[in-house]
Design a protein around this nucleic acid. Structure first.
Lengths: 368, 368
DNA sequence: CTGTTAGCGCATTCAT
DNA sequence: ATGAATGCGCTAACAG
């Protein structure tokens, strides 16, 4: 193994004390410019790289951020992580990756993460059932940022999108295209984003003066299979009962819907127009190509890192702020989405749309 | 912040020395069963979690493995990482993730990794131009395992597939389906896997007694665009000159080929049959669905971790072994691939194939 | 088998 | 502005 160059080596070679070397390392101001230059030069020459491990130990805080993700093969994850990784890269922090998979108890992973002292903060994608535990850790002072969903109530600082507005725009798009009976396939109701998307759907119908028909709302699991199930259910309806469009709460379910619809002889978009949610990579390639709400996953990742680090650096004052103003609602950063229009909604069949893809954006008329 | 429970606390509460606690932690044999039980119980009660950072520092080796990957949005990466993550999870190591992206100098990332002392070993996906640097680090004693490609010569322990055999099978499949003029679209020639796939292609032609036609070999970049370029080139040929099938060295290029072929009026597989390589998620969904060689990415990830950890644990003896037998060729683990037959090769148009997907496997007649 | 003594490489008081 | 001393939490020799 290469003999590690230590601060001590640098100190000796530069003719200063270890403390001084440490000072230039941490960019303290109280070092004579001349001395600093000399030390820096020696560090260059020796290829000195400070040990993160030791620095963490000694300083009491490490420069590792724990990132906890669902399986990386889940289609929304890689793009988020790309944003996270690139944001981290501009800092002197590193990523410790914990990924969860199906048959694994949440406590296992949390215990593992608690092998902290390693990581000084936590970034969690889709916490799901971990939320209570995370909230607890957060109150104990561990900076935690959550991406995407945060359970029924927002309890932790988070980064994501405005699901309600996005769903509103998706539904409104269908309305403007002239569809009259617009169905909705939901995700699992325990997710906050599912409720919000549903609300956006409802509000769009209201604003358009459409009657709300509960029988047109279907429950899904966010998995492909429930898209298939939904398509099967619709196929069994008489043409007059059948909706002429559907807003599906994520792209995965939309794929299932598309596939089953084809097999069942339902033409998309002629018989039923479809709008999805997420815009994961496949969505531009399925047939028909999927109109969907694009989530800015990359930016979400970047913003989450920035938020997390800002929390981390604010740590010292936090307790003071808490004492002054009491517990504040956690910070929420919302990034804009856009509707990506492709084939499945039928818009491209109309004469006025000639582009391959375009986007719309529009706010709900009322807040609430 | 939660007051960290230290070994010292445990030692005091269990009425033993810190050294003993450390012994049960590291599962040393020389601890009286009774004492061990007591210590373990106290650790349970206190929710003690040892600090990886401190352990690494003190022990001289950390329990972090550095994983260096191309952008996570590259389609083959997530599945590999999933395997890596799950394998790591069964150990007491953790992953430190470094991901590279386009506009970034290799040295930057390597320097960053050298902020080692952090990580005790390195797993690198598609090292590319990093290979020399990695080789250097490896000779300095850093355990390094490479996934996929390793440059022109195998210089580092690696995990991957037998590209030659896989390409042979893909090409032979086309031959058996009766295609006579079989083209090949290569990747960038600096990659070893590209050469091997080419060799497999050549050998299949040889074994079948087909003449080799250099004008049917095209150079690509592994990117979608070169698939399009290739299709364009083929479209300009007269039907008699044009190949009736093509083996494309990765799925990304195959997508480009499929897309451009459709636009150019070339029917797949009627005019040209296509076989790809990788079987990334999209491949089952493009139209026509792509026949391709499936790489066992998940298993590759798992095996890479196992290899890396075995190297790490063998570290102490390594120099001895070297001295005895001189430098040995680096270990190479090769995992089996299988050909996934879908629409693009035309096999499903023939009467005897009724299944949606099936696989073939077959060895080259001769080695070399 | 177990306790004692030294550090690992660095940050952080104190001094000066 | 700089140096000396102390300790982070743990492992690794040593002794016993």
């Amino acid at each position: 193994m290469k003999p590690k160059v230590t601060i001590e080596d640098i100190a000796r070679l530069a003719g200063v004390s270890k403390a001084t070397v440490s000072r230039v390392l941490n960019e303290r101001s109280n070092v004579k410019a001349e001395t600093r230059e000399r030390v820096l030069r020696v560090m260059q020459e020796q290829g000195f790289v400070p040990s993160l491990a030791a620095a963490g130990l000694a300083g009491g805080r490490s420069r590792l951020v724990g990132v906890l993700t669902p399986p990386l093969t889940q289609p929304t994850v890689p793009e988020i992580l790309r944003g996270v990784a690139e944001a981290i890269e501009h800092t002197d922090y590193e990523i410790v990756l914990y990924s969860t998979h199906a048959g694994q108890s949440p406590s296992t992973i949390v215990n593992r993460i608690l092998a902290l002292g390693l990581t000084s903060c936590l970034l969690v994608l889709q916490p799901g059932s971990l939320t209570p535990r995370l909230t607890q850790l957060a109150t104990q002072g561990l900076p935690v940022v959550v991406i995407d969903d945060q359970g029924p109530a927002p309890e932790l600082p988070s980064v994501g999108i405005d699901n309600r507005v996005s769903a509103y725009q998706a539904t409104m798009h269908l309305i403007r295209l002239g569809y009259r009976r617009i169905a909705h396939l939901q995700g699992p109701s325990e997710f906050r984003c599912v409720q919000e998307r549903y609300q956006g759907y409802r509000q769009a119908l209201d604003d358009a003066g459409y009657p709300f028909n509960p029988s047109l709302v279907f429950n899904g699991t966010f998995e492909t299979s429930s898209g298939r199930a939904c398509a099967t259910a619709l196929a069994s309806l008489s043409p007059s009962e059948r909706p002429d469009a559907i807003f599906i709460a994520n792209d995965q379910m939309a794929y299932g819907f598309l596939g089953a619809a084809e097999a069942l002889g339902l033409r998309i978009p002629q018989d039923i127009a479809v709008v999805g949610f997420d815009d994961i990579p496949l969505s531009a390639h399925v047939k028909p190509r999927l109109t969907t709400v694009k989530q800015p996953f990359y930016e979400i990742g970047r913003n989450a890192v920035e938020l997390l680090l800002s929390l981390l650096h604010a740590q010292p004052q936090q307790s003071v702020a808490d004492a002054e103003s009491g517990p504040q609602p956690p910070i929420r950063i919302q990034l804009p989405t856009r509707l990506v229009i492709r084939e499945s909604c039928g818009a491209l069949l109309l004469p006025r749309h000639q582009e391959q893809e375009h986007t719309v954006s529009e706010e709900p008329k009322s807040e609430g």
